[in-house]
Design a protein around this nucleic acid. Sequence first.
DNA 1: TTACTTAGTGTAAAAAATACACACTATATT
DNA 2: AATATAGTGTGTATTTTTTACACTAAGTAA
Lengths: 229, 229
Amino acid sequence: MEQILPHLDSVFSIDCVLFGFDGKELKILLIERNEEPFKDWWALPGNIVGPDESLDQSASRILYELTGLRGIYMEQYYAFGDPGRHPQGRVITLAYYALIRLGGDKELRPISNYAKRANWLPITDLPKLAFDHQKIYDKGLEKIKRRIKHQPIAFELLPEKFTLTQLQHVYELVLGKKLDKRNFRKKIVSFGVLKELDEKQKGVSYRAATLYRFDKRKYAKLFGKEISF
Amino acid sequence: MEQILPHLDSVFSIDCVLFGFDGKELKILLIERNEEPFKDWWALPGNIVGPDESLDQSASRILYELTGLRGIYMEQYYAFGDPGRHPQGRVITLAYYALIRLGGDKELRPISNYAKRANWLPITDLPKLAFDHQKIYDKGLEKIKRRIKHQPIAFELLPEKFTLTQLQHVYELVLGKKLDKRNFRKKIVSFGVLKELDEKQKGVSYRAATLYRFDKRKYAKLFGKEISF
DNA sequence: TTACTTAGTGTAAAAAATACACACTATATT
DNA sequence: AATATAGTGTGTATTTTTTACACTAAGTAA
């Protein structure tokens, strides 16, 4: 967050790259700034770390304040601190990413006051971003590309119950390439972290697919073993 | 660095985990503190980020000031900022690691004044560390374990010219397990980033091994392709 | 009933990973 | 000169993993 600049030698903030998936596209949450500098520009949501909170707590709080969401997988991934990155002084910012499924029941709470508005924008067509936020975003995308290959973060982008096709779709979007359906299924099932449900997809005008759930227990047992895509 | 505490709301520092390899053991550089808190304890070397330097510059400067070394592969890997991590106030610290070959020509310059002494200690037998430095070290080791599998960081621990056995030894120490000699050689050579020299090891009382050099050019060409151990 | 759309499945071939043992060479020792 | 010593350097067979590839089944809509 870049708005408030108390007169300290340095300011420490957290910026979040919130990746959202609506079933079709990958999006990120941006706010349109209402204040100088970069008034009217799109920016990543962020805020200043409070004096008595841990970094992870701070990130959770910020995410909650901005979106109303709790319990989201979120991870620190890089600190940005070029002296020139903020026109009004030294602001060191710690970047976190979060993965969120969009749409359906949970709607986002309105965003706090320093923004004109907030919006989920598709990553395929992003506007110019304020500050060095493009760099922060780029690094975040790079990070989740790596991480989705080794950790079960894709599930955070999907509803609790999902089809294998939806899961494959998420992988394809994040990795930016097509995957073979049969090989994908073989591999993802072989990890043994999916639970096949006795339930089918509903509301589609074609053959309904089987629903699956990510099985945290089984995953916990695998801990230490590497998953690899 | 935890010594100087100007009266700011928060202080931003960098701590370095310097891994060194002397041909036999993996070591890290620790300083013995000369001031409270944690007087007489061992701690990671670190310092406060200056107002006009980038984070990477700051890390390089700190490494230089502590060791006299330049041009070392160094990477930011995590920020630690629990409110309670420093007894005298809020200190957020950014951890960097560096990999250094020890011994031979370059000796370390004396360390700055806030420490009684500095020493390379083998990671197999570390003392209790000040602050949350054990945590910082643990995470650093974990990080290089991962990274050595995908990036050519092992060479930073070795002299410019090295034997395949020495290289294997580094991998074994970092990964903490034995590797098969033939398979190791097959694989590492197949990456195509080593240049075999017309030179042999000297001063050994047995058959001298061929020397190799890491070929940065060839590695640059591979960029994008994943190396995997 | 037919047309449409996505779900779901198997196999063969290629590539990569693993397991494994001995002869060679340089030096030091007697 | 012969021998002991210590690490170098190499190949193959087996298993596992990855890749490439195409059709039938099931449900819905017209």
